[in-house]
Design a protein around this nucleic acid. Structure first.
Lengths: 372, 372
DNA sequence: CTGAAAGCGCTTACAG
DNA sequence: CTGAAAGCGCTTACAG
């Protein structure tokens, strides 16, 4: 068991100074403080409650909490399974809300009483991981990759299957292929974007920025993309969405507008769980079981803490590409213009349903109104 | 600040005994132990880390963790928002996994370092709530109602809108109306079941147990119900699902079988968030925003802990009924037999898609095979 | 900026 | 079954 006493011995200062360093007392020398925190992490100093050391790890967000997204929900569910073997508990932390700017990450996590952290970051918060590892606090990063071989991380490489997915569209005869992604980039969406570009490149198809749609990763985001495509004069015949909600929202919006999938437009989605089975037609998708990411992270982190081992785990798990019913041959192109969309009028009974023609007419009217 | 010292004073024993009582030392007298735990809760004794008292509440499950279900995910998201004002953190606990049978609930939660608990229970675990309140530990129960006015609880009463929903079907002309619910009953599903029964009763329609389907609340569960209905000789013309996933799964399965919704079958679902917009036709549904339940619970509990107030909150929020596109007039009934289903053959392009007729033929063949 | 000493909150042999 | 006392882990005036 590592107490302040042990840290004091190892670092050659008094327990008073150790206590002060861990509590970020401003009087303690910057250099000493850093040294003590390093030692504390080396000897595996753990927050205690009474005499018991805590058995908590954190699932921490570096930015906004996105737990309601299917990816995060699946990861979290995996984490809850992953901590069971070593009987750890999970606390949700928000760095943005609670971390004092003057304290180090180690100080923050110790103050919160957690022994390790599973971190969910965005592109612009990658530096945080380096800082935490530098301090030596037990860390596992979800859904990112690093050059450094000291950062525990697990992610899913969706690039190969993204290439495969776009090549599937090309093989079906598609030439104008769009891409839909989240408007805040992260590693996962970048992988899929790179796969999309790579596939175009391999088959000497031009990259067209106007075919890359960046929207919120929600049903509404996918719906918006579909509406934007509807208004294009030179529409794509297929689209690959890097996100499950966007794909589902787009397929739904298509049906609302009387656009048939895959006859008028082929759609490939991404699936973190099993939403591809909840829509009709069943969505062709690049798939992963995101809960595995959470499970592996939580399992490795809690094992390390329990047995005081320190080997680094860097793992990339593959996705799989599943061809279902939302992809098919492209519509015939006449005189170089986009095929007529929505020619099969919507056959539901709903009052709100409208054919694509009337939708587009209304849309263009409002665009004209906006312009004047 | 309440220390063991204060509890000792108030209960007239030494701090030694208090410590023993809180740690469930078997030597301490049963009666004394109970008394001390009551006092501890009365003075608001709180677990400390070092000298700091913790700012954690638990989101605890009495049974299996169901965080991946949209209802729980939404509740949890609400909890995370609800703790922000008082800057509490949330830890997920599992009573089944970690509570020792000899320790009281208070002892368990103190050992875990949480100051209060938001509890998610099932019908058969209601007694736990009474035990916790008896001990005096800060508790908030999600999605249940109690006769006792001492238990903080919040739920959503979906019975009135369930009646309204079924009456909507009756008004459209439906007479054989089915009901789909989770095979493990809880308060919410019981409300909806009671609403279903009440509506039938009001309009003097017979209750038919063969029209009540109890299945897992998953896409697969809803799909199963749809397949079961398909094989009935005296099919219902409408169904009300008490669960979002079941409704979505059923609508999807219907399309796979070539059954048109609402022409062949009207479907009403239940929606905890916004899944009704992810399917086509947009699902007519009894709706709630389940995240409000979590938000209110977390907000009230953390306020109470922060300001040391003790007034009990019992709240029931209403649902709303939203008529969308999955309900319509029943199909014509000929000679007292069910209308022909799947007469409009499936018009997707998929290889796996099959008309209802071929599906049913196959199904009946396999049933016959099973019988021999 | 650092440490010896006092002290808080808790637990635990030891005594009864 | 209970308590006085020793002791652990930590923090904090006080002194330098």
């Amino acid at each position: 068991m590592s107490s302040v006493r042990k840290i004091a011995e190892q670092s050659g200062v008094s327990i008073t100074t150790v206590s002060r360093a861990l509590n970020n007392d401003p009087s303690v020398n910057e250099h000493t403080r850093k040294h003590i925190i390093t030692i504390a992490n080396r000897v595996g100093y753990a927050a205690t409650m009474g005499k018991r050391i805590t058995t908590q790890i954190a699932f921490a967000y570096a930015g906004e909490q996105t737990i309601s997204h299917p990816f995060d929900a699946a990861v979290f569910e995996g984490i809850l399974r992953g901590v069971n073997e070593c009987r750890f508990d999970v606390v949700i932390l928000n760095l943005q809300r609670d971390k004092h700017p003057e304290e180090t990450y180690t100080q923050f996590f110790m103050r919160k009483g957690v022994r390790g952290v599973i971190l969910r970051i965005m592109e612009e918060t990658r530096r945080i991981c380096h800082a935490i590892v530098e301090e030596g606090f037990p860390l596992f990063v979800i859904s990112e990759r690093f050059e450094s071989d000291k950062i525990n991380c697990i992610d899913c490489d969706s690039k190969p299957d993204s290439i495969r997915a776009v090549e599937h569209l090309i093989a079906l005869g598609h030439r104008r292929i769009a891409f839909g992604m989240h408007n805040i980039p992260d590693r996962d969406h970048m992988d899929r974007y790179e796969g999309y570009c790579e596939a175009l490149n391999r088959h000497e198809l031009p990259y067209d920025e106007s075919l890359v749609f960046r929207q919120p990763y929600t049903l509404a985001g996918g719906s918006t993309v579909m509406k934007m495509i509807a208004c294009m004069s030179d529409r794509p015949t297929a689209i690959y969405f890097a996100d499950p909600m966007m794909g589902v929202g787009a397929i739904k919006q298509a049906r609302e507008m009387g656009v048939q999938i895959p006859q008028d437009l082929s759609v490939i989605g991404f699936d973190d769980t099993d939403v591809r089975f909840s829509v009709h037609p069943t969505m062709t998708a690049v798939c992963q079981d995101a809960s595995i990411l959470g499970f592996e992270a939580a399992s490795h982190l809690t094992q390390s803490l329990t047995h005081n081992t320190h080997q680094c785990l860097q793992k990339t798990i593959p996705t799989f590409f599943e061809i279902n019913d939302s992809t098919g041959a492209p519509p015939l192109i006449q005189n170089g213009h986009s095929a007529h969309w929505g020619n099969l009028s919507f056959n539901g009974h709903s009052d709100v349903a409208e054919t694509f023609q009337s939708y587009r007419a209304r849309q263009q009217t409002s665009l004209q109104e906006e312009a004047t």
